[in-house]
């Protein structure tokens, strides 16, 4: 479906190089939307981007959200459309609406088995 858009390879390469990478994927579209579900944008912590989730209208906003996702690891579902003020400002001129799922690819840290113990300050 996304033949030339070898985002998986880009994501892998950047993950190797930078230790983490964010992947934004179009999951739903309504009306006229330039990119179909499954279209992806890769965002690295250094700020470089590859691929697309729209005709260029919302990539900047998605990249901003991606840096948040890279920071705290929490996946986000973003909605854009003519009713969305931010997308309107960014000029989603096609008049479509779409949802973009943003997730982080990072090594999983094993959850702590016990609550961390606060460091004790030894009495004098």
């Amino acid at each position: 479906m996304t033949d030339t858009e070898d985002m998986l390879t880009t994501a892998s390469d950047w993950f190797e190089q930078e230790g983490a990478v964010a992947l934004a994927t179009v999951v739903r579209t309504w009306g006229s939307s330039p990119r179909q579900p499954g279209s992806q944008l890769v965002v690295a912590p250094s700020g470089r981007m590859a691929g697309s989730v729209s005709g260029g209208c919302i990539e900047v906003a998605v990249a901003e959200a991606a840096s948040g996702v890279l920071r705290d690891g929490e996946a986000q579902l973003l909605s854009f459309g003519v009713t969305d003020e931010r997308a309107w400002e960014l000029g989603l001129a096609c008049g479509g609406r779409l949802q973009v799922f943003v997730e982080r690819i990072a090594p999983q840290v094993a959850p702590p088995t016990a609550p961390p113990i606060a460091p004790q300050i030894a009495p004098e």
């Binding site: 998986l8 994927t25 999951v27 739903r28 179909q36 579900p37 499954g38 799922f101």
Partner: peptide, 17 residues
């Protein structure tokens, strides 16, 4: 075809590779 499906009140995005 990749799409969102609703199953048991939950939304799943099925991404075909």
């Amino acid at each position: 075809e990749s799409a969102v499906v609703e199953l048991d009140g939950q939304s799943w995005f099925i991404h075909v590779h």
